[in-house]
């Protein structure tokens, strides 16, 4: 009987997390259009609902009812599977993110603010993030179009390259917290903003933010879909629901990388000062995540796109050596402090 209650509450937790994440994904597109509009001195979406608040729902419905086109000469199986291969790794990472502190008990059911705490949490996210490249690569190949193929190849090269500095940037906080579990990493940063890893590890934080923007194919690193040269990159031939899947995956990845940055560098759900702990932890978590999301959009509105060789050179010649040097220094200091 206990097992049944456990399974039911786990299923409900998963459903709630997925629902909330997808809702945020939908509304991130709205915030992006509003913030971009504000930065460019225009209104953004205004027509659907109060100040355009229902715009994401209208967009979703439109994409859902659009005609599903598969180009002739495309490999049908891989063409249909590719959007799913992109979306699933983006959503599955949310399973190990601790959103808050307190679990909620209603009758026999206990709901935790995290789907599951596994002892390799952060590696689990990295493992599934590295699988996201397949969908992009295969989507580009299966479209039977040169722009899509070139976009796919570019994206795969970019994602594989920037995975390295991203992983290296996370090693510093892992060394400091002595754990790979997201919950233990959050706990290691309790006791106010001075304990957050961003203060001890500022350089990895910057490496992480830059690589995360590159990993999610956002401006100024959106070369896989550079409009002026590749039409729309790997999803040139996609339309309707499948196009929406790629779109959802990009925004879900943005939220996921923001959640990781919050947990690893900004103390997760901890308040910046013990006196502010009366505000629920989950609100602190949301506020920090939205700071990152705002930064993503701000960067998009500000910076021009990089050239491809600049992008690769920056990753291999600057980010990677700096990341390695940081690991060396951090591990020496940690060893020296502990012995």
């Amino acid at each position: 009987m206990d097992l049944m209650f456990y399974i039911v509450s786990a299923v409900i937790t998963i459903a709630v997390v997925m629902g909330v994440v997808l809702l945020h994904v939908a509304y991130i597109t709205y915030f992006e259009r509003k913030i971009l509009g504000d930065m460019q001195d225009r209104m953004g979406p205004m027509e659907v609902g109060y100040h355009g608040l229902l715009q994401p729902i209208a967009d979703g419905l439109k994409l859902f009812f659009k005609e599903d086109i598969i180009p002739s000469g495309a490999n049908k199986i891989i063409f249909t599977a590719a959007p799913i291969l992109v979306l699933v790794p983006a959503l599955i990472g949310f399973a190990v993110i601790p959103f808050g502190r307190d679990s909620l008990t209603i009758g026999p059911f206990t709901f935790n603010p995290i789907i599951t705490d596994i002892n390799i949490g952060i590696l689990y996210i990295l493992a599934f993030a590295s699988l996201g490249a397949y969908g992009v690569l295969l989507g580009g190949w299966a479209s039977n179009s040169k722009y899509a193929l070139l976009g796919g190849l570019r994206s795969a090269a970019q994602v594989i390259s920037y995975e390295l500095p991203l992983g290296l940037a996370l090693v510093g906080p892992i060394l400091l917290s002595e754990s790979l579990s997201m919950v233990k990493m959050t706990e290691a940063q309790s006791g106010g903003a001075l304990k957050w890893f961003i203060l001890v590890q500022p350089i990895p934080f910057f490496i992480y933010v830059i690589s995360a923007i590159a990993e999610t194919n956002r401006l100024p690193f959106d070369l896989p879909e550079a409009e002026s040269e590749l039409v729309a990159g790997f999803f040139t031939e996609y339309s309707g629901m499948r196009f929406a899947f790629f779109f959802l995956a990009e925004y879900a990845n943005m939220i996921l990388t923001s959640c990781i940055a919050t947990v690893v560098f900004l103390g997760g759900w901890h308040a910046p000062h013990p006196a502010l702990e009366f505000i629920p932890p989950i609100l602190w978590f949301l506020a920090k995540v939205y700071c990152f999301l705002f930064f993503y959009i701000w960067i998009r509105a500000t910076l021009p796109r990089l050239r491809f060789d600049q992008l690769m050179g920056f990753c291999w010649k600057i980010l990677l050596p700096v990341g390695l040097a940081n690991i060396l220094i951090t591990s020496i200091v940690v060893y020296w402090l502990r012995s």
Binding site: L123, A127, S130, Y134, A156, I160, E163
Partner: peptide, 15 residues
């Protein structure tokens, strides 16, 4: 295993 073999090596093969 997933990060190295599936995420890096096989992607390069596919490339």
């Amino acid at each position: 295993q997933i990060i190295i073999y599936a995420g890096a090596i096989l992607v390069l093969y596919l490339f």
